[in-house]
Design a protein around this nucleic acid. Structure first.
Lengths: 248, 248
DNA sequence: AATCAAAATTTGTGATCACAAATCTGAGCT
DNA sequence: AGCTCAGATTTGTGATCACAAATTTTGATT
């Protein structure tokens, strides 16, 4: 286990996390203007940390500034989804190639374990846990590449596509193609076959994002999906409890 | 000509521009801590806009937060330069491919004109103007692709590599390879030959960044170059006057 | 000289205030 | 009803203040 860096406890970061989670879950409608004072009072903080958190989200492309000094949730269009698809193909494909070149046995074993857990979660119909496991698998894969700048860039892309990946449920993920591809990615990493690993990974992203782009209406706009619910869950939700600050 | 969007006149943005220009020019040493109050008093503003500008630069990777709540200029290593090289190859290669597919005659003509101006500037030994023209050429090229998210991502990469591109002067740019490659890129765009355009563009970036990486010392560290000076200039500097806020 | 703890100083963070720009509201008019 | 514009309200911006965390300085001690 790695030593845990001292967590950033600043209010700024807590507000950032709250907004990021709410955006990723699709709790804000595209085009919706965000009021600084509303966010501040909802989260029980002053304007200062809210401003800095929003500034960061704007820099990351998760929010956008409008001419009159207001901030809103970006509208998503089919063209933007396809653009993000191609950027993700380029960067996540690159990370996968690099990962295949240097993956250790332990890292391959960990990836295989996450892929198995994902199959188990999916068989239970627990979509929220499914999404988390998919994220865990991908970032475990990209982390193997040991390229911190690349990893940060990919995180930014996931932040922008996040609200729309719920649209893959439940229809798209019913295909057995995903699990098969993940196993082939793991096998390619084990064999240090960078080209094969990239090919499989790219197929996965290409199909998923193309599917989402296909959901755009005639005007090219896509509405983000609502937060997911587990099909049948006992006890607590599979989603980890969020921090102290959250939106209703 | 396109209609000009109303310029953002907020102090936050002015401070951001000042810091970005100073960083790009290599005016801050790697590892140097930046004091909010020093910046604020130097630029004659309060802490508030300084904080937001720094927050944005941190989000873009141009500055980094350190454990104790301080902000510093990132150290640059050979490994980071090579990582940035490969990311730039992926994204700028992608943008070039897309540009080649859709370039109009006017756009190709504009690119060719910029390439010619660059040759003229270089023959005068005006390195600062040279750098500006190179940037103009590349972003004119990437702009043709009409992919705004991709363009923003590339701007972020240039911000991170910026302070080190001065190291290409005067030795590296003496090679006639650069001008030749740019002409071949323009020709490929004219022929809508995406593969050829990408190949030439990638060769340009690969050689330049590999050269910079080769300047790293035994520990892998690279110091950014000092601001450039024109070889022989008459009258004013070729650098456009910066805004009201600037560092000494 | 080298070491180290206490004191002094500097620094980033968060809250609050003042203000102008943006937005909303509604009365009056066509 | 639809439109316009003045007044009221809300909103983001920038400055300032208080405070605790981090850093530097100081001075006693070995």
């Amino acid at each position: 286990m790695g030593t845990k860096a001292p967590t950033d406890t600043s209010l700024r970061t807590q507000v950032y996390d709250s907004l990021r989670d709410a955006l990723t879950a699709g709790q804000f409608a595209p085009g919706q203007k965000l009021s600084f004072r509303y966010i501040a009072s909802t989260l029980g903080v002053s304007l200062t940390p809210v401003r800095e958190a929003i500034r960061r989200l704007v820099a990351e492309g998760a929010l956008e500034m409008r001419p009159g000094r207001s901030v809103r949730v970006p509208l998503m269009t089919k063209a933007k989804i396809l653009e993000l698809r191609d950027i993700r193909l380029a960067l996540e494909g690159l990370a996968t190639e690099k990962a295949a070149a240097v993956a250790t046995r332990d890292e391959v074993a960990r990836l295989r374990r996450i892929a198995a857990e994902l199959v188990a979660v999916r068989s239970r119909g627990d979509s929220p846990a499914d999404r988390l496991k998919i994220r865990e698998f991908h970032f475990a894969l990209y982390g193997i590449a040991r390229q911190p700048i690349l990893l940060r860039a990919i995180e930014g892309l996931w932040l922008q596509t996040g609200p729309y990946m719920n649209l893959l449920y439940p229809d798209y993920v019913a295909s057995p193609l995903g699990p098969e591809r993940r196993l082939r990615i793991v096998a390619a990493l084990q064999a240090h076959d960078a080209a094969a690993a990239r090919r499989e990974l790219e197929g996965d992203i290409y199909d998923a994002l193309s599917y989402v782009a296909g959901l755009a209406d005639a005007a090219g706009n896509i509405a983000p999906a609502q937060p997911l619910q587990a099909k049948r869950r006992r006890g607590r939700s599979s989603l980890p409890p969020s921090g102290a600050l959250a939106f209703p």
